[in-house]
Design a protein around this nucleic acid. Structure first.
Lengths: 337, 337
DNA sequence: AAGCCGTAGTTATACGTAAAACTTCCAGCG
DNA sequence: CGCTGGAAGTTTTACGTATAACTACGGCTT
């Protein structure tokens, strides 16, 4: 009989079933074939059920030296994108008996010097978005198996990388706008130092360089609607050779451009075409609906977890970029004039 | 010298500092006053530093019988609201040496029968949103300390509750619209069985019952822009006594109403006033900006964690509702006619 | 009949930490 | 001078699990 108020242990189950603790461990761990008779095994299972036995994870983790838990490090969860990444990662993890702990970037959460206060040694591996930069050094110090999301394949020596084909998406957006006759571009860039944004800038510039008569201006903005509004309003005020198309680093920035356009009396898409990246719910909430690049966040998370599992099992995390799709909606139209 | 490839243990630190393992535990656990000399303590700290020692959490948890980790159960993270709740909870938790594990509602994540596959016994307590209903029974079975967010104070026997003053918010919204002359109301309700939504319906109905000539119609919709659009379009098509004000259960639903209004050729706010609840970024992205009730998600999370800490320490989690604010923007105007 | 093997278990141990209980030494007091 | 008491440690144990190593026994082969 287990002492009241305490959770039953495998020893309590053993006592109830009239066997040794080892037998309980074997049966419940599904390692009993040829070691325990079917009748005894059933008695053990029955005892565990009636006592409501749950193995103590701390003890198991200590014994096994691993936790079957991985950490997902993401920037602030201000959009549903990383929620989707989490969902995908957690689904694949669950299929393999793993759990995923979500670690949104500090930003006032705790002692920033130790982003892993709650996790520390209790992890088997880490999946980290390149946007959560400051956490990386700490991870490296712990030399845990690491998968980087949307990060420079060259720069992340040692770590596996899983990337979205952002370059391809930007190419599609640019070609779409060029096809509509646009030549004067504004790139509204996120003011975050992260590879995934560098790719956007690089690809857009590269694409436009090959087009005679094309011009590209760049404005930086914090990733928020208000921030984008201010930045875009300033950039679009230069009347004479104002841009006719604004390529934004993400959908939130695009929503800010809508507001700036409204203030300036510019109609979207007649006088100004706007594009985003992400395809958030926001993209269809605003009017006109936003032409954007759809990123499959859940697939991204699934692939990330898949790669980490591969690393953990000593397999090769063969990385190929995840394709993205241009979704043409009402925010882009033929260039004016 | 610790064997290569393995993390150093407290015994390794002890060896390096020339003391016993117990001394290391005392020093690093800050329980050494009067038990270990300052000089020895410093030697231990130095050794721990140079070896890069991190205590093994599994061992500590096993020894102490607690994990200093709590679970936050929330519905899907499709808006930034629960991200804010997490941030607030995690901040307070960190100040008390606790960690918070986020558990977004299953919805295809894992074996739904066991929502705590990754957590199980490794928890000291749970904070759960009433919107994540199915998880509750499982929690109850584990009889962990529990704090419910936005849940019926009567219904949640035994558990502490922390609530937003949603009723007050609905009252403010209704009074605002009544003051603008509106009498025909449509309530666009979330089709989720949860106390926080029941309160909205009850309070709105109660308020309007006391107003002569006021009418209230209700339409249900899934919490998404598309869902709200379809539901609102149907409800607003009844031409003769169509509602002039739509009170929505949250901002996403309100965004759907905008789209329905656009399809029906109704101008917001001239012909139709619309209100939301939450004050998400979305509220200022749409045009006109949305009149809504601002909920302080971070404060909500802080209070939730505070209440749980109180329960864990045997104190009284004195619960008072968290005030909310009506934010009047461009989506509400005088009733037409 | 001796040896062997498969079945059905048990006993013993290790994981790393925290802390209770013990030891040793020395200073100070009566 | 013997005794007390505090300082500064050490030794030991327990937490609950998984598993390696061992035992006991009956049936079968040779």
């Amino acid at each position: 009989m287990p002492r009241a108020g305490t959770r039953p242990t495998s020893r309590d189950v053993a006592r109830a079933a009239g066997v040794s603790q080892a037998a309980v461990s074997l049966v419940l761990g599904d390692k009993w074939r040829g070691r325990v008779s079917e009748a005894t095994a059933e008695r053990v299972r029955e005892a565990a059920r009636t006592l409501g036995y749950r193995p103590n994870l701390a003890a198991r983790n200590l014994r096994l030296g691993r936790t079957r838990t991985v950490l997902l490090v993401v920037p602030a969860l201000t959009t549903e994108f990383f929620a989707g990444v989490y969902t995908g990662a957690a689904r694949v993890a669950a299929q393999h008996g793993f759990g995923v702990v979500l670690y949104p970037s500090p930003e006032g959460i705790g002692p920033a010097r130790d982003p892993f206060a709650s996790a520390q040694s209790a992890l088997d591996g880490v999946i980290a978005s390149s946007m959560a930069a400051e956490a990386l050094t700490a991870i490296r110090g712990d030399q845990l198996p690491l998968v980087m999301l949307d990060s420079d394949p060259e720069g992340s020596v040692g770590a596996a990388t899983v990337n979205l084909d952002i370059a391809g998406g930007v190419r599609q957006v640019t070609d779409h706008l060029l096809g509509l006759g646009h030549r004067r571009f504004l790139h509204l860039a996120a003011d975050v130092a992260s590879w995934t944004f560098e790719v956007r800038a690089r690809e857009l510039a590269a694409r436009l360089r090959s087009v005679p008569g094309a011009s590209l201006r760049t404005a930086q903005a914090p990733i928020s609607i208000r921030g984008a509004e201010a930045s875009a309003e300033a950039a679009l005020s230069l009347a004479p050779d104002r841009a006719t198309a604004v390529v934004c680093d993400d959908d939130q920035l695009a929503a800010g451009v809508y507001k700036a356009a409204r203030r300036l009396g510019l109609r979207v898409p007649e006088e100004l075409s706007v594009t985003g990246i992400d395809d958030l719910a926001l993209a269809t909430a605003i009017d006109p609906e936003l032409t954007t690049v759809r990123l499959d966040a859940e697939l991204f998370g699934e692939r990330g977890m898949g790669a980490l599992l591969a690393v953990l099992e000593g397999r090769d995390p063969h990385a190929s970029d995840i394709p993205v799709d241009l979704v043409v909606r009402g925010s882009t139209a033929r260039a004016p004039g």
